[in-house]
């Protein structure tokens, strides 16, 4: 899986860097020569998980492609905060067309590169969860089905943040959004809806599907680099907490991603040709409350008018993930 199991912070490491590792084993992010694909001065909120996840992912893709990379971007926070005229944050050739067409634009780029014989130049497409699971879903599915040579990266922050935190099909049950308010008998987003896009991607039988979080940099880089070694359609969904939309502290972004993984709420795995080939195990299993409690979008589940039954249902979802993917250390995955 993701990275070799190591024992210490110096060599085993969950940290970004490691002065004791051989240079080729060090993370892209630790390098002074990392491409910093998204320059400083972008207008993402304080503690933005997407800004972080995007730099991690694109820098890794840049490293793997020797800087021969083109990115297509769906409309959304990432696009808006990175390219408001007259300033662009991007250091890679980059195009934004529409909200729902990034995968198709990327297909077009890949086709152009192929026909021009530029086999060393690679293409990534990227978007938020709304642009991916909802409005861009048709184009994404088409790109998957044709097995176009595109790595699609979804930065999943579980709602439409750019427009003011509305529900997407990636919004979890019970979460408060501007369109799933915490009112009524079952406050927040309803249970039993939503799309599991990684699994839908797997169902297309594409060469590579993976999930990752901004809390596991080495795993994330490993997956991006692995994906970049493969030709054909690839999909990586990166869990990127949103301080603004979730009502969390700006310094809790990585913590939230870590808790999502450690509670089983967000299973971190990889799959090849539709089969799960690896999971990132939970280190210390935690109850979902640990993950939910710091988030204002779940505040209505706690306190005076608490909804323990809804928490129990969220726990059941996490438990199902744990069972299904074998997320515990001693489980077969």
């Amino acid at each position: 899986m993701g990275f070799q199991t190591v024992k210490f912070y110096q060599t085993g490491t969950f940290t970004v860097g490691n002065r004791l590792l051989a240079p080729d084993e060090r993370s892209v992010q630790a390098g002074e020569m990392r491409s910093n694909s998204i320059s400083s001065g972008h207008r993402a909120c304080q503690g933005c998980g997407e800004a972080l996840g995007a730099r991690y992912a694109i820098d890794a893709a840049m490293a793997e492609s020797n800087g021969q990379l083109i990115a297509a971007n769906a409309t959304g926070c990432l696009e808006v905060f990175s390219t408001p005229y007259p300033e662009s944050s991007w250091q890679v050739p980059w195009i934004h067309s529409l909200f729902g067409n990034a995968p198709a634009v990327a297909t077009g780029i890949a086709a152009a590169l192929k026909v021009k014989g530029k086999h060393d130049v690679r293409v990534v497409a990227q978007g938020g969860d709304g642009g991916t699971t909802d409005i861009g879903f048709g184009c994404l599915s088409g790109m998957f089905e044709r097995n176009d040579d595109v790595l699609y990266i979804c930065y999943d922050n579980e709602a439409y943040m750019n427009t003011g935190v509305q529900r997407s099909s990636a919004t979890p049950p019970a979460a408060r959004t501007a369109t799933t308010m915490p009112v009524g008998n079952e406050p927040g987003n309803v249970f039993g809806q939503g799309k599991n896009l990684p699994e839908i991607a797997m169902a297309h039988g594409i060469p590579y599907v993976a999930t990752a979080t901004v809390a596991d940099l080495r795993d994330l880089e490993y997956k991006v680099r692995k994906a970049m070694k493969i030709r054909g359609a690839r999909y990586i969904q990166i869990f990127v907490p949103c301080p603004l939309g979730w009502g969390t502290a700006s310094d809790a972004t990585i913590l939230m991603a870590r808790l999502a993984k450690e509670t089983g709420t967000f299973p971190v795995f990889e799959a090849e040709y539709g089969e799960v080939t690896g999971v990132l195990k939970i280190r210390n299993k935690l109850p979902v409350e640990e993950y939910l409690k710091p988030q204002k979008r779940f505040a209505h589940l706690f306190g005076k008018h608490a909804h323990p039954e809804m928490i129990a249902r969220l726990q059941a979802i996490a438990d199902r993930n744990i069972r299904k993917y074998g997320l515990l250390q001693d489980q077969e995955s």
């Binding site: 195009i95 067309s97 198709a104 634009v105 077009g108 086709a111 152009a112 021009k116 048709g138 184009c139």
Partner: peptide, 28 residues
């Protein structure tokens, strides 16, 4: 020769693919 023919899933995708390929320098 030297042409990619792509069967897309919708007209929206057709134009989007053309946007991508044209932006990448291909006559589309």
């Amino acid at each position: 020769p030297k042409c990619e023919f792509i069967n897309v899933e919708s007209e929206f995708a057709a134009m989007s693919v053309a946007i991508g390929s044209s932006a990448a320098g291909a006559r589309s």
